[in-house]
């Protein structure tokens, strides 16, 4: 049992995960949030995900660079340049979070050459971050948590599209070797 979300059909062999159908990361809304959660959980478990970008989709309604820490889609002819850039720039552990007593630390190295460290310790922010572990419709959140989600999105720690939100940094459950590499 890998504990990966079942909402995305997939097969696992060793450390490789093969996603059965294309992922619609450009669709926005729930479908995108679910796909992001799935890829995020693969990273957190140190699994290598093989997946394809839904060919018919146009560009996403958000800056694709926020996903640079997730495994990129398989290469295909004529793909948009931003997918190629994602693949060439992908580094394991470019964004992740860790849990401590009453706080969460985030390391963000999605922008090459920078390393931003954030500590989330405000209860409302933490609660919103925890909630976004699962894809969440914004209208299910109260005003305080909606505001917190806005702050997380501004820091590029949450993806919000078409009324759905999901947290972006995986929780690292399996350290790479060397563990100091991320």
């Amino acid at each position: 049992m890998t504990g990966l979300p079942a909402a995305v059909p997939h097969r696992v062999r060793g450390r490789r995960v093969a996603v059965d159908g294309p992922l619609r990361l450009a669709a926005g809304g729930r479908e995108t949030a679910v796909a992001v959660q799935f890829l995020r959980e693969c990273v957190g478990r140190g699994l290598d995900a093989a997946w394809t970008w839904a060919a018919d989709d146009a560009g996403p309604p958000y800056d694709l660079r926020v996903l640079r820490h997730l495994p990129p889609p398989a290469e295909r002819a004529g793909e948009p340049g931003e997918l190629t850039a994602w693949r060439t720039g992908y580094v394991y552990g470019a964004l992740y979070h860790r849990r401590g007593p009453g706080f969460v630390t985030v390391l963000d190295r999605r922008d090459a050459g920078t390393a931003a460290r954030l500590t989330l310790d405000h209860p409302d922010l933490l609660a919103a971050f925890d909630r976004l572990g699962e894809p969440t419709p914004l209208d299910a959140l109260d005003a305080v948590h909606q505001e917190a989600v806005g702050l997380l999105a501004a820091e590029r720690l949450a993806l919000v599209t078409d009324g759905w939100a999901v947290a972006l940094p995986p929780r690292i459950r399996s350290w790479p070797v060397p563990c100091t590499g991320i």
């Binding site: 450390r15 140190g46 580094v91 394991y92 552990g93 190295r109 050459g113 390393a115 399996s174 350290w175 790479p176 070797v177 060397p178 100091t180 590499g181 991320i182």
Partner: peptide, 15 residues
Amino acid sequence: WDAPVRMPDGAAVAG
């Protein structure tokens, strides 16, 4: 039985 994710040497060393 398992193989961890491997990172290049010095991937996160101070600049």
